[in-house]
Simulated scan of single mutants.
Amino acid sequence: MLLWASLVGLSFPAVGLMSALPPLSLTALRFAIACLGLALLVRRVPGAWPGWRSLPLFAAMGLCLAGFFGAMFWAAHHATALSMATLYVTVPLLAYGLGLGAGVERLAWRLPAILALGATGALGLAFAEALERGGALRFGVGEAVFFLGCLCSALYPVLSKWGLTRGVLPASAAVRTFWSLGLGGVLIGLLGLAVEPVGRLATMSWRDGLLLVYLGLASSALTFWLMQRATAVLTPGAITAYGYLVPFVSMLLLFIETPSRLGWSWLPGSALVLLAIGLLLRHDPTAD
């Protein structure tokens, strides 16, 4: 999951280098490329084709992906970046609460305390960035839609863990990643066809194409595969908590690019995030 957080954090600069293209259609293409890469692994795995019991669950997981990315891209035009960053830190706590309801989390105090600590640190990083850019926190329709997307994001690992523990989903992380990304990509692509000028994809440059292949293989296929691998040994709340490292990685890249932006305002949030991840690495669920 540390590698997962690093890959996700590195993906944001890559996205920033791309031309202004239809985001939903672009995401569907990313998922399609990811599935092509995963197909090389999946084709040799016994039981690669989902049965009737697992297909509805895979469809629900794909709907979670479509719901999150659809909400994120729509809210990007109706909500402030600070508001979205603030709402996203609720995902691990949401995943923990949903996991309790699904029976894949244990009622305890240590993990929620670690999640709250990490959320506080991530909020500190968000507000440090807001101080530089003069952003403002608010809650409107855009923020409400993005919060629904956060619920979808939190539900994805919960469904994965629930299906895995009950034998509904296959043991192979590659197979679980392939089908959830495949069905999610289809749903996102259909949404893109309905609301976006898909013809603008024809203006994609060769550099955009190379970045898209990188994002599809590294930022989609590999990251979701790592998440599915972690699902076998971690709970949904613990998995999503590593997302607190993503803004920290992005912050480090920002300082490498522009050292002059380094200031004391970033220190409290960074320290809390690192402390939360350190506690998470030492966390023993059986001790709760």
Rank of each mutant, 00 (worst) to 15 (best):
L193I: 12
G192Y: 09
L210A: 14
S219P: 03
T203C: 12
L211E: 05
L190C: 10
G185V: 09
S219V: 10
Y214G: 11
E196Y: 10
V213N: 05
G189P: 04
L201T: 09
Y214C: 14
G185D: 09
M204P: 00
V186N: 06
A194S: 13
S220L: 11
L193C: 05
A194W: 11
L191T: 11
R200Y: 11
L215R: 05
V213K: 03
L212A: 00
V186H: 08
S205R: 10
L187I: 13
E196Q: 06
A202S: 10
D208G: 05
L201M: 13
L211P: 00
W206P: 00
L217G: 05
L212P: 00
G199R: 13
V198P: 03
P197C: 08
E196S: 07
V213A: 14
V195F: 10
L211V: 09
L212H: 01
V195A: 04
V195E: 04
I188V: 15
V213Y: 02
V186K: 08
G209E: 08
S205V: 05
R200D: 15
S220H: 15
V213M: 09
D208E: 05
R207V: 14
G192R: 07
S220Y: 13
G185Y: 01
L190R: 03
V195M: 02
L193P: 00
S205A: 09
L211H: 02
W206V: 10
G199D: 11
A218E: 04
L187M: 15
R200Q: 15
L215K: 06
R207I: 13
L222T: 13
I188E: 00
L212I: 08
